[in-house]
Design a protein around this nucleic acid. Structure first.
Lengths: 154, 154
DNA sequence: CCGGATCCGTTTCGATACTG
DNA sequence: CAGTATCGAAACGGATCCGG
C-alpha cells in the first residue's frame, strides 16, 4: 500500500515537506522566541497542540534534521529539543514572516517595537538571534535573551 | 455546534491562517516566479493540484486580500488572479524560503546561480522582483521577467 | 510528574467524475 | 475553461493509558 502523494517534488518548493506545516513552525517559533525546550514546554504553549500531534511533529522535525533530542542534563525524566544548524537557518524566514504578520495582522503579530528594531539593522539582528539560539538562548525569554543583550549594549 | 479551534490566535503566529498552507504558497510561487495568472495556469503546474483544492485556495487567498480576481481583458472566458500589495509583501518570505530550500534541498530548490544573484544584493533584488510583479511580470517567465531585465542591464 | 502511545469521533483534504 | 459534487483517505482533537 504505497503512501499517496500529497505534495509534489516541484522545483522551488521551498523545502516545504520539512517545515511547511503550521505546527512545526509554531514549535520552531516557541524555541526561537520563547526559549521552549521540552515536550512539556511545547504542550503548555498557547496554541494547545494535542499530545499525539506534538509527538508526531517533533519526530518529524528530528527526522528532517531540524531538531535534535538530547537527555536533560539535570532532570533525567526530560528530553531537551534544540535546533540544529539547519533549523537555525530557518530564522531569516521567521523574521520575514514576523514582519509580514506584524504589518497585516497586528493583533497577533510581534510587538511593533521589536519589528522596528529588527529592521533597523536586519542582517546583524538575524545574526544576533542565530548566535543567541546557538547558545541556548531565545529572543524574548530567559537570561541572555536577545532583548537583554541589546539592553546591555547601551 | 461551534466550530472547533484548529489554530490559536497566538502572538507571533506569522499570519499563518492567511497563507500558511502548502498549496497557497505554491500558488503564490507560481505567480511570482512563473507568471501564472489563471485557474488553468495553476492547474497545469507541476504539482497537480486538484480542481476543488485550487478553487478553495484561490477563494481563500482572495478573502484574505492576498489575491484579486479580475476578468481577463481580452479573453472573456478567463479570470486573472493577481497579487495585491499584501501579497507582494510576501515576496521577502519567498526569497528566504528559496534560500533555505536551495541550501538544504538542492534537488527541488531554485537554481544556485539565481540564489547567488539574489543574495549578492538582496534588498535591491527583492525590490526589483516586487516591482516586476506589480507590473504583471515574473521572475523567470515572460517578457520583462526579472532575469531579462538583469540581462539587459549589462 | 514527564514523555509519549493508542484509540476514537470529527473535520478536512484530495482524486476523480461531472457540469454550466 | 472554471469550477462543483462526491466520497474515501488522512489529519486532527480529546481522552486515556502506560513505562520510567
Amino acid at each position: 500500500m504505497k503512501k499517496q502523494l500529497r505534495r509534489s517534488n516541484c522545483p522551488i518548493n521551498f523545502g516545504l515537506e520539512a517545515f511547511g506545516d503550521t505546527w512545526s513552525l509554531l514549535i520552531i517559533r516557541d524555541i526561537v522566541y520563547f526559549g521552549k525546550k521540552t515536550y512539556g514546554d511545547f504542550l503548555r504553549s498557547d496554541e494547545r497542540i494535542a499530545t499525539n500531534i506534538l509527538a508526531n511533529r517533533l519526530a518529524q522535525l528530528e527526522r528532517h534534521g531540524i531538531l535534535v533530542k538530547t537527555p536533560h542534563p539535570i532532570d533525567r525524566r526530560k528530553e531537551v529539543y534544540t535546533l540544529t544548524e539547519k533549523g537555525i537557518d530557518l530564522i531569516p524566514i521567521l523574521v520575514e514572516m514576523a514582519n509580514w504578520g506584524a504589518k497585516y495582522d497586528p493583533d497577533t503579530g510581534a510587538p511593533q517595537e521589536w519589528i522596528a528594531l529588527v529592521n533597523s539593522d536586519k542582517e546583524n539582528m538575524i545574526r544576533l538571534i542565530q548566535d543567541t539560539v546557538r547558545e541556548g538562548g531565545s529572543v524574548f525569554v530567559g537570561p541572555n535573551s536577545v532583548i537583554d543583550r541589546l539592553a546591555q549594549r547601551e
